[in-house]
């Protein structure tokens, strides 16, 4: 029996999702044995035209990481969709937009102006910014179009499954590969990670008091948190309540709060909205009747960047997708 064909591809990504595959260490050999990798630009020399030459659906599964930021990324994933039986969005950027998705607070012009004109180290008296076409004396040079808005993979093509995380942990990657090989996949559209929230699996969750109430918000640098206590109990915002489990509580283990890279749990559409709702619910609950409206506002104003915090990984996948530019 022929081995199933597998492709890996990357878009606006950092390379960390590729490292995650390399971090399978010995397990990568098992994968290589069981499948036939037909396309992996980072590691193997196959070209776009090799993919074009394949029949529709010939690739059993394509793992695609990175958000969509340029026209050529969009073209490439559309081609892969056509040639693949299954598409798995791999990692936070592809799944939710990820950290590069924070660019949706701005647009191309504001980003170019900052990067090429106003940062203090740039000397650019003629205000040059990169162009899609440049005529140099020798000929024409081209660059791909840079979009105003970062998009998730499923805003660009139809996606079958999601592997969450920045980057996805090795055990979930192996589980996913095994499930695909054995044909034991859940329903289409599923996130290939546990259904529970991070709080449900977090070792600090058990000790969490029945009724949480935050009197004062603390930023992570302001206190030394007790490594046994729930961050919320200490006033540090942690997105565990609205984040899917499965990462192995990686940040928590380093005594740092969760920032939500695994995305929301199943029922949630908008991770940021859910997150701010969850946190708002427990702010000052203990004394809520005694607090004036002003007190309440003052407490909430201690959250200085709610949009950036609650949507840290998920702005492009949120209901609003991006900032509304004036």
């Amino acid at each position: 029996m022929a081995k199933p064909k597998v492709a890996f591809y990357w878009n606006a990504s950092c390379g960390g999702c590729e490292e995650a595959v390399i971090d399978l260490n010995e397990d990568i050999l098992k994968v290589v044995e069981a499948v036939d990798i037909v396309f992996w630009p980072v590691a193997l020399d196959f070209k776009k035209k090799d993919v074009e030459a394949m029949g529709d659906g010939e690739i059993a599964v394509s793992f695609i990481n990175g958000a969509i930021r340029t026209e050529e990324q969009e073209e490439m994933v559309k081609l892969l969709r056509k040639k693949s039986g299954l598409i798995v969005a791999f990692g936070s950027c592809s799944h939710l937009g990820g950290i590069p998705g924070l660019a949706n607070f701005w647009d191309r012009e504001t980003i170019f102006t900052r990067v090429y004109k106003t940062v203090p180290s740039t000397a650019n008296p003629n205000g040059i910014v990169p162009q899609q076409k440049t005529n140099v004396p020798e000929g024409e040079l081209t660059l791909p179009e840079f979009y105003d808005t970062v998009k998730t993979l499923d805003q660009t093509i139809d996606v079958d499954y999601y592997l969450p995380g920045c980057a996805p942990p090795p055990d979930l990657i192996m589980n996913a590969v095994t499930a695909i090989l054995e044909g034991k996949l859940p329903e289409k559209g599923a996130v290939l990670a546990p259904e529970k929230s991070l709080c449900d699996t977090c070792p600090r969750g058990e000790k969490k008091p029945e009724k949480l109430s935050i009197k004062e918000i603390k930023r992570p640098y302001e206190i030394i948190p007790d490594p046994e206590k729930c961050f919320l109990e200490e006033g540090i915002i942690c997105l565990g309540p609205v984040t899917r489990s499965g990462c192995g509580e990686r940040c928590i283990n380093a005594n740092m709060p969760c920032r939500g890279c695994f995305g929301p749990t199943k029922e949630v559409i908008d991770q940021g909205a859910k997150g701010l709702s969850a946190i708002a619910s427990i702010l000052g609950v203990e004394d809520e009747e005694k607090m004036t409206e002003e007190d309440t506002k003052k407490l909430i104003d201690q959250i200085v960047d709610p949009a950036g915090l609650f949507y840290m990984y998920s702005l492009p996948s949120s209901l609003l997708k991006r900032k509304r530019m004036a």
Binding site: G272, A280, S281, V285, I300
Partner: peptide, 30 residues
Amino acid sequence: HPGDCHYKKGNYKALRRAYLLKKTLKQLGI
């Protein structure tokens, strides 16, 4: 009105959520 909620404290929660939501939306250009 504050104090009159039939579920006792629902409106306090609503106040906090609405205020935080408005702050967030403002950052998103709304």
